[in-house]
Amino acid sequence: MIKFILRNIWRFVILVILQIVIFNNIQFSGYINPYIYVLFILLLPFETPKWLLILSSFLLGLSIDIFSNTLGMHAAACVFMAFMRPHVLQYISPREGYEASSLPRISYYGFNWFIKYSITLILAHHIFLFYIEVFTFSGYFFTLSRALLSSLFSIILIVFSQYVIYRK
């Protein structure tokens, strides 16, 4: 149990560092920016208490905010994503439900399940984030296209990372 918690804390720290050091500097054509740190929320175990889910997502967003001068924006998007997670999990659950002590990963539930899971949540996070950043609905197609393009890159990187780091 302790090992489990420590592992998640490590993942939190490493993802925040990776995001601010590397991925915030990857900017395709000026305004597409992948946000891979949401992988932390995606990979939290199924049994995570709901209050902890929201609280840890808030802290995750806040730490990204502090480093990128966007106080509140990432926090708001992460909290929204965390709120959506149980609903999405319920909606796409396999017929026999989730096994005890399994994790939301490709190695347990397959590629199709994981891609559905990550696309829904990452889209929710990115669209929320980009709209709260411009804080207006004027030019909403432009904002939407930025959000969709960035989501695409995030999804590719996150799915790719699953094959590179979490091989069985």
Partner: peptide, 15 residues
């Protein structure tokens, strides 16, 4: 809980 955190975050953004 979600509402509380969300409102607090958006408050931070506006502030």
């Amino acid at each position: 809980l979600f509402l509380t955190f969300e409102i607090f975050s958006i408050f931070l953004v506006i502030e």
